[in-house]
Amino acid sequence: MSKTNAAAEKVLTFKPTAALTRCVWRVAAMSTPFDATSAALDHFALFGLPQRYAIDQRALEQSYRDVQTKVHPDRFAQASAAEQRVSLQWATRANEAYQTLRDPLQRARHLLELRGVDCGLETNTAMPADFLMQQMQWREALEEACDDRDLAALEQLAQELAQQTSARLQHLAQHLDGVRDDLAAAGELRCLIFMQKFSLAIDDAREGIEGHA
């Protein structure tokens, strides 16, 4: 867990040059539309969708395509530089909004942000004890499977993870849309993000084994 902490407070340095003080410090990562005062741009509103976790994927896709059809730079290849710039900004914004809304975890995070809830993804690394135990067991299972180059074990681990993920996603949905409990949702979201990272680690391990098969 300390790894995440370190990542959040990473000190950046750059190759030495005499004239400069090179050390910078990352404040926060944020995704960004063109507007500098962007923190609370509402992606739901852009696509005319209600501000809630449950989403109509088809309506989202359709809105996204309709918007891109109007604003995409390909529509403005012969237009003035001013129009091309506006088109680039809008198309960028539409992509940003679409990518955020179609991913359940990013959508949840965005919704919480709109509600003014700090998810503490970079600062709050306190996890429930049982979740931490579970994590440790999974990590051990992953290491073992890697050492044994055991694809079947990896597959089983991936399935177990998928099951737990979908259970947690249901809780997340309830906290966000049902009996509203934003703080509980934020906690659930933090766990889910850990699980997503672990899922990527399993994929990497699989790839490593398959690549050398």
Binding site: F14, A19, C23, R26, V27, T32, P33, T92
Partner: peptide, 21 residues
């Protein structure tokens, strides 16, 4: 998906720092 923009914020590490690389 293109076009895409992402921003990240950084801050100075030393007092009075006026440049970054």
């Amino acid at each position: 998906t293109l076009p895409v923009a992402r921003a990240q914020e950084f801050t100075t590490f030393k007092d009075g720092q006026t440049a970054m690389r």
